[in-house]
Design a protein around this nucleic acid. Structure first.
Length: 497
RNA sequence: GGUCGCGUGGCCGAGUGGCUAGGCAGAGGUCUGCAAAACCUCGUACAGCGGUUCGAAUCCGCUCGCGACCUCCA
């Protein structure tokens, strides 16, 4: 393995920085997970795939990653201050279920969808409700620091007091004075000393469903608190990477930094990474806008905006074709192009497995070809080293794929590359596609044995020049998404793109 | 209103000063019973205007258009 200087964009400093773990070879990464009150949508897919790829690449480079992604199973408020309703409780009432049944149900569907997208499971997947004592301890610590205050059984973080010692707004680039003057006068925030203060613990009304006893009475934790509690418990008070969607940058991550500094006197994370949003017709796709498409709807094609179903791997590939910090616009056209691109990549994987190296004395090394392969390999790594530029890496993979395909069709002899480069080419291609990008063949309805039987018939018919039969088999297989390929010396097949 | 970001060929989408991104769609060619696949070749794009520079999609300014965050959201 060559030396890699991984650079990643740190939202905190707004520039790309050299990555170095606090305790090599270990890397601690915390990513904000879903609030489980509904099916996961395309917007959940993006951070999951983005940080899965980060996890995969770091692991590939030899780091030992502890990847923590939480499940938020305590609903936060749908509205402002006391007027709001717990999202999970709301769903529970609607479906006549226990809140925990709702959380369990959608945790399960989330896991199912993430597995389909071929994301690695987090090392630890803590739940907010499983860490109530830790959260209460944090509130007490912040109170002890004099950076929070209690009102009517609720505890609020005192942002102005905090800002005297630390800097509130350093992540989002917000200036406290502007926040104070710019924040709206909301009803029901009378308890707070200042509108910029945020809840650490909320007093629960009698009809509130999810609540716990605390030193300040029965209540529930504020929504920024769980991430601080769980990240510090499992990764320490300062860890390497904190990830999440850009929409969480403010106030959520800003508040995490404030809470971390208030308790531990240091920033919780060295690097903050934020994936951009998926847009639909140029507008953010999101629950609040009601324009989201769930992953299941994508997989089944069951949505008015969808022309057809798109497989999980198509979705994964689609997301990886854009740099994670760019917005990515959803459209049927783009997804169909992604589907074809993905199939092409996977067909290449099948082909690569078949290729054999055989030395040929009559074939000289082709230095130009060799150099092209070497350049593409190096470029693919350089792309990933540059803030996980999967889009660019994929571009270089297609260049490698051309070489693989050329060898497959006999237009390029493996011997022209030399054994070492030949092996390196195949190995790099497979490693990038499968290990790093996480793209795998989708076990469809292809039964290899059955297929080979049919292809034998095809070959026999062809030898007998029975073209009616040949065409019949070919069109029959095409209807099932299998392309028959008549090669010079044999018959092969591929997934239809 | 405040803060931040974006505008790339028919479509998607990389690219921060000179060196072919790539995919999809399209055209021509090689191969082939015919196809398909694959491979080769092709379009010479960077919102507009001005500036800096030997040289700009890439830096600076202005204009226009779009979006995100500021309230729960990945």
């Amino acid at each position: 393995m060559k030396a890699h200087q991984l650079k990643l964009y740190n939202t905190l400093t707004r520039q790309k920085e050299d990555f170095a773990p606090i305790n090599p070879p270990f890397v601690g990464m915390y990513v904000c997970g879903p609030t489980v009150y509904g099916d996961a949508h395309l917007g959940h897919g993006r951070p999951a795939i983005t940080f899965d790829t980060v996890n995969r690449y770091l692991t590939h480079l030899g780091y030992r990653v502890r990847y923590v992604r939480n499940i938020t199973d305590v609903g936060h408020l749908t509205g402002d201050a006391d007027e709001g309703e717990d999202k999970i409780a709301k769903r529970a009432k609607l479906e006549k279920l226990e809140p925990m049944e709702v959380a369990q149900q959608y945790t399960d569907t989330y896991h199912r969808d993430m597995a389909l997208l071929n994301t690695w499971k987090p090392s630890i997947e803590p739940r907010a409700t499983g860490h109530i004592p830790e959260q209460i301890a944090l509130v007490e610590a912040i109170l002890n620091e004099g950076l929070a205050y209690v009102v009517n059984g609720s505890v609020y973080f005192d942002v102005l007091a905090y800002n005297k010692k630390y800097t509130y707004g350093k992540l989002s680039g917000r200036v406290i004075e502007e926040l104070v003057s710019g924040s709206r006068d909301l009803d029901g925030q009378g308890e707070k000393r200042n509108s910029v203060d945020f809840a650490l613990w909320k007093n629960a009304s009698p009809e509130h469903l999810m609540k716990w006893p605390s030193p300040w009475g029965v209540g529930f934790p504020g929504w920024h608190l769980e991430c601080t509690a769980m990240s510090s418990k499992y990764l320490g008070t300062q860890f390497d990477i904190h990830g999440g969607g850009m929409d969480l940058l403010f106030p959520h991550h800003e508040c995490e930094i404030a809470q971390g500094n208030a308790c531990n006197h240091q920033d919780p994370a060295k690097f903050w990474m934020h994936n951009n949003m998926i847009t639909i017709n140029g507008q953010k796709m999101g629950k609040s806008l009601g324009n989201f498409i769930t992953l299941q709807e994508l997989f089944t094609g069951n949505h008015t905006l969808l022309d057809q179903a798109y497989s999980p791997m198509t979705i994964r590939y689609f997301i990886l074709t854009a740099q994670y910090r760019s917005t990515l616009d959803f459209s049927n056209e783009a997804l169909k192009a992604a589907q074809k691109g993905y199939k092409k990549i996977i067909n290449g994987l099948r082909i690569a497995k078949q290729l054999q190296y055989s030395p040929q004395d009559d074939i000289a090394l082709d230095t130009e070809q060799i150099q092209q392969v070497e350049t593409s390999i190096a470029s693919a790594y350089r792309s990933m080293d540059d803030d996980f530029n999967t889009a660019m890496a994929i571009g270089h993979l297609f260049n490698l794929l051309k070489k693989i395909n050329s060898m497959y069709t006999g237009q390029l002899a493996p011997a022209a590359l030399g054994k070492e480069i030949f092996i390196q080419l195949l190995e790099t291609y497979r490693t990038f596609v499968v290990d790093i990008l996480g793209l795998v063949e989708e076990k469809g309805d292809v039964q290899e044995g059955l297929l080979n039987l049919l292809l034998n018939q095809y070959t026999e018919a062809k030898t007998a020049r029975n073209y009616t039969k040949v065409d019949e088999i070919r069109s029959g297989l095409k209807a099932m998404g299998i392309l028959v390929k008549d090669m010079k010396d044999r018959i092969d097949w591929a997934y239809e793109e």
